[in-house]
């Protein structure tokens, strides 16, 4: 495998030893462990950028709440707290099933992996359905973002609150939709029996992403629905 480089600074060195290169191992990695830890580090870096990305809208929230505290208090009463709480519980449950799916992959339980992935996707869809009804209710009352706002009965600058509400939940909802997509992709691969204790990085990384989506909602819920 390894030929010695002729340079004075370099000497030949055999890094692998264990000749077989498993199918799931990309050519430029030497060990499955190297591939797994690389994938995970990459995912955490991606999550770091997601945190900074959402951090921007939270910063906008802080500034606007600082400018319009009264409006926030008045306008948030028009959000559906029950729907928000239900969605919180749905997302938390989906996080649980996702964690169980990763565990199932780690211990090689294919059936449990597939079931838990399906449950996660179903909960994600349920979240979007509730979101849909919430949005429709807002549209009906004219609580539209920014200059399209034509609702009545809220003091202050409600167009700003609803602009922010739709921006934050919209961005989050977009992440849920993307999550459904990647979960489906992992589900398909899982049904082809690609994952097991030797190789489960995609399941784990999609799981990390999904937990982050949950994490953001954990903050969005009290900030938007439970202003005091």
């Amino acid at each position: 495998m390894s030929t010695s480089s002729h340079a004075p600074a370099a000497h030949g060195h055999d890094a692998h030893g264990h000749g077989e290169h498993p199918k799931f191992l990309a050519h430029h990695f030497y060990t499955p462990e190297q591939q797994l830890t690389s994938a995970k580090l990459g995912m955490w870096l991606f999550l770091a950028q997601e945190i900074l990305f959402f951090g921007g809208v939270f910063m906008a929230y802080i500034a606007l709440r600082f400018f319009y505290p009264g409006t926030f208090l008045a306008a948030h009463e028009h959000l559906n707290k029950l729907a928000g709480a239900a969605n919180t519980i749905i997302l938390l449950t989906s996080s649980l099933t996702m964690a169980l799916a990763v565990r199932a992959a780690q211990v090689g339980n294919k059936k449990s992996l597939i079931n838990n992935l399906i449950w996660t996707i179903l909960f994600a869809c349920a979240f979007m359905v509730i979101k849909y009804f919430e949005y429709s209710a807002k549209f009906e009352h004219g609580y539209l973002p920014g200059k399209y706002y034509h609702g009545h009965g809220i003091e202050g600058a409600p167009h700003v609150f609803f602009g922010l509400y739709f921006t934050m939940t919209g961005l989050h909802g977009l992440h849920v939709l993307i999550g459904i997509g990647v979960l489906a992709w992992v589900l398909i691969r899982a049904s082809k029996d690609e994952f097991g204790p030797q190789f489960y990085a995609p399941v784990e990384n999609v799981g990390l992403y999904w937990h982050l989506v949950d994490l953001i909602w954990i903050f969005l819920f009290p900030l938007l629905y439970l202003v005091r």
């Binding site: 606007l64 600082f66 400018f67 319009y68 505290p69 009264g70 409006t71 003091e155 202050g156 600058a157 167009h159 700003v160």
Partner: peptide, 21 residues
């Protein structure tokens, strides 16, 4: 609150918003 003119916002944008409401 709201629709603060650009002139006011030179010193703090919407800060005049509804700080007192």
């Amino acid at each position: 609150p709201a629709f603060v003119t650009p002139k006011n916002s030179d010193h703090g944008g919407g800060a005049h918003g509804d700080k007192k409401d």
